[in-house]
Design a protein around this nucleic acid. Structure first.
Lengths: 240, 240
DNA sequence: GTCCGATAATTGGTTCAACCAATTTTGGAC
DNA sequence: GTCCAAAATTGGTTGAACCAATTATCGGAC
């Protein structure tokens, strides 16, 4: 009961089937297991990795849920072409096993966010309910309590809810999964922090006024700003 | 070897752990299992459903992959708030267990597509390689072979590839998972078919000319058209 | 020789029983 | 009441066995 969530997450022992997942994932992403190729049998993999077949099966279940493989009883498991059938979650999986694609993936994510979030803000300004507005105000104007990064997450999330489109919410969840990868790079800078706090207020008032065009513009500008700030940071980091 | 893919898919016996998944999914989506609530123990569920604990575990693994539950060794499994942490794949899961949200979900998906795909076409026109252009031409201009709906899927997919953003490709995969739900309603109409075939040619030529603005406009127009066509269809279906 | 069908071998799906590892609960010492 | 160690609870993993679908094999009909 006393353990903080941070400790729980950092200490948590990696489950064996997650390690197996990682190995297979790496083989697929790196191309050691090519599209259409048949995986070893469950029994053979259990032997190879020195684990139980049940454990292998849990790993295969994960890859199947990502649409990275198909499994057919009596036959075997085959690698699918993730560009044709894979679901969006695979980019996170990719990042975890292949750091070389990191920059490309992050760029792709930010581009998608730059396309979607302004429209999300637009819809939110038009459709926001009174209760969403209230929650937005509580989060945007109260400077105490949580960190800026946490407040930023919450603002985007609330705007998603206010937009009335569940996919906007889920897309926002998706972006946030990558805050761990690059969010701190942005928010550790004091100037960026200030800029985002201004954003929180501005977008709240635009949504309050139901000025959709302005909300869209404000969202667009903060995303462009943060992208620029982030990439210059990454470039500096690479030079150092 | 003789069985067609259709037969394979329709006949395929539902795996037991998938049935368990379905039950638990329904309980969560319908709110019988509320956010924060603890699920029964694996052993208890195995008893309740009359299956083995291993089978229950495979179902739980699925829900965990969807970020619908968290599992903690020594403690148990808890329902998460999917609006805060769920990944995009859950909307498909929702559709499979709760038909009442069907209209809302499809509307949400089409809105997101209307936001993204025109920008995807824009990028594709700017960045398309010669090989992507070639594949696009083969698909867009050859009227023989596959059905219009299959050609349509392929066109969108190729535009995604040409855009150079892997997320555009994966988002396109995502939309396509719902063609089964509403695609046939659109493509069974001869006039709609003709309209889409025109779209295929038009967007190809725009991308060939690298006219990004035009490609974006063409994409936007076909999406608006198809949405209108689809909703009038759904409305008629509801009246009949 | 080819083709067909029965049969065997292979492989994923499920079950059972046991034990390991983390967490929670219990109950006594203070 | 607090604290700590033991016990109970619960998820994680293992091993072996059997079920079910697919594939490979082999013998006979032609």
């Amino acid at each position: 009961m006393l353990d903080s969530i941070e400790i729980k997450q950092s200490i948590k022992r990696t489950r064996v089937h997650e390690q197996v997942t990682r190995i297979l994932l790496r083989r697929i992403i790196r191309g050691k297991l090519q599209v259409g190729q048949k995986l070893s049998t469950e029994r053979a993999m259990a032997l190879e990795f020195g684990v139980n077949r049940t454990t292998v099966r849990e790993a295969l279940r994960y890859l199947e849920n990502l649409d990275l493989i198909t499994i057919r009883q009596g036959d075997g498991a085959y690698v699918k072409n993730y560009l044709e059938s894979g679901n969006i979650q695979i980019v996170k999986a990719i990042l975890q096993v292949d750091n070389s694609m990191r920059f490309q993936v992050i760029t792709a994510i930010m581009e998608i966010r730059r396309i979607n979030s302004p429209e999300m803000a637009y819809s939110a300004a038009l459709k926001r309910s009174q209760s969403h507005l209230q929650r937005l105000e509580n989060t945007a104007l109260n400077r105490w309590g949580v960190s800026v990064i946490e407040r930023d997450k919450k603002i985007h999330h609330l705007i998603g809810l206010a937009s009335g489109n569940i996919l906007h919410v889920l897309m926002t969840n998706f972006y946030e999964e990558f805050y761990d990868f690059f969010g701190h790079l942005y928010f550790e800078n004091e100037k960026n922090k200030k800029r985002s706090e201004k954003f929180h207020k501005d977008i709240f008032f635009a949504i309050k006024k139901q000025n959709a065009q302005e909300a869209k513009k404000i969202m667009r500008e903060i995303l462009l700003y943060s992208e620029k700030a982030l990439f210059s940071k990454i470039k500096c980091g690479a030079d150092a």
